[in-house]
Design a binder for these strands. Structure first.
Lengths: 204, 204
DNA sequence: ATAATAGTTGACTATTTAGTCTAGTTTGGT
DNA sequence: ACCAAACTAGACTAAATAGTCAACTATTAT
């Protein structure tokens, strides 16, 4: 009942892109509204603040991302192959982003998290939650690889934390240097951390 | 000739702390001035913009940091020991920071770099430069370790890039989670990347 | 058809912010 | 002593920004 609109979604899309291509602190509500083609009044009809909008937007993006990750980290795929596919996927994604925006943008969650964690508790918690889910994908792949005997990883959670740090660090470096080639051999580092022997690291 | 003052230094100190404990985008010139106990007129006497001030401040901080790193990465110290000392140093530093500010703050350069690289070219370049110097410390330690035969690393630059990504990623994670324990076994990950055998990883 | 609901609009206020300008004050060199 | 250079004070402007509000419009369930 009543009027319908996709303004809410347009606002979420706008804020996501503005934060990713720029930063949280530098995106203003006016900017968001203009990009979304939505007036200020409507903004405040849907959201109380930039912080709340960002939290909802990042949550929605994560729900979409999960679908992709579910496919990549499918238990049907051999565990080390999942990791390789994930790196491949990231590399392609960043390459496409650079083609579109002229910049490598890295991981939206990690960049936002680092920026706002000391100031916006609500957003910080949301980001922590998302990063923790990401870690779980890695963890299950590592656990499966250990069970399959292709690596030795008695503490998969610890290895997953290491790999997430490495992976996110690399994406951030790629963003800072605006160079997608930084990500060229992401999987090499991951396999090194996992102690995968050259012989197990089967070629594509 | 003329009057002397430490206002310039006070401004640089203030901006460093505000960016580190918060973010670049959220620190205003008024805030910087107030923290430094300097009036706006004086701010603009010394600097043209927040960006210029930040660039000078981060440069100055780096000059100080270099002295510490020169000690830690002294060629007099066995190469793997250098890496261990570096991790130990970071852990302690972050622990002290948390005691002081109630927050783990991670690496100032990496956080700032990720935030501003798409918007402030001058600052972005400066940060890239500093991160590259950091990489060189790692690289020389890795090269020395390879030469000493304790690890196999025919491409020390590549390994150094990996380790820097891991190290900075871990610090950023510690910042986001506000948990210094994330850094507890930093060196373990580094040694894993380098393929150091347990037997070579001599206990302290 | 219409009333209730969902969403829109734009003008409005109050603050914050960056940046300027001028008249001053302190200090070192001669 | 005193000049010039180095620095300070603070009032000022203009613009950007967050947030409010009341009147308006479109949709849909009945």
């Amino acid at each position: 009942m009543g009027r319908v609109s996709d303004a809410k979604k347009r606002l979420m899309d706008a804020v996501s892109e503005l934060i990713w291509t720029g930063s949280y602190g530098s995106t203003t509500i006016d900017q968001i509204c203009e990009k979304a083609g939505v007036k200020k009044g409507s903004f405040y009809y849907f959201f109380d603040s930039k912080c709340e909008l960002a939290a909802e937007a990042f949550d929605a993006n994560w729900q979409l991302k999960r679908v992709e990750l579910d496919a990549i980290f499918s238990p049907m795929v051999p565990p080390l192959e999942r990791l390789r596919k994930y790196c491949e996927f990231s590399y392609r994604a960043q390459r496409d982003i650079k083609a579109k925006y002229g910049r490598v943008l890295g991981c939206p969650q990690f960049a936002l998290g680092a920026e706002v964690c000391t100031q916006e508790d609500r957003l910080g918690k949301k980001i922590q939650e998302i990063l923790d889910y990401k870690r779980k994908y890695l963890e299950s792949a590592i656990r499966d690889a250990h069970a399959a005997g292709v690596i030795k990883a008695p503490d998969p959670a610890a290895k997953a934390r290491m790999i997430l740090a490495y992976y996110e660090g690399l994406l951030t470096q790629a963003r800072i240097q605006n160079d997608v080639e930084v990500l060229r051999d992401t999987v090499g580092g991951i396999f090194a951390i996992l102690g995968v022997k050259e012989s197990e690291a089967v070629p594509v």
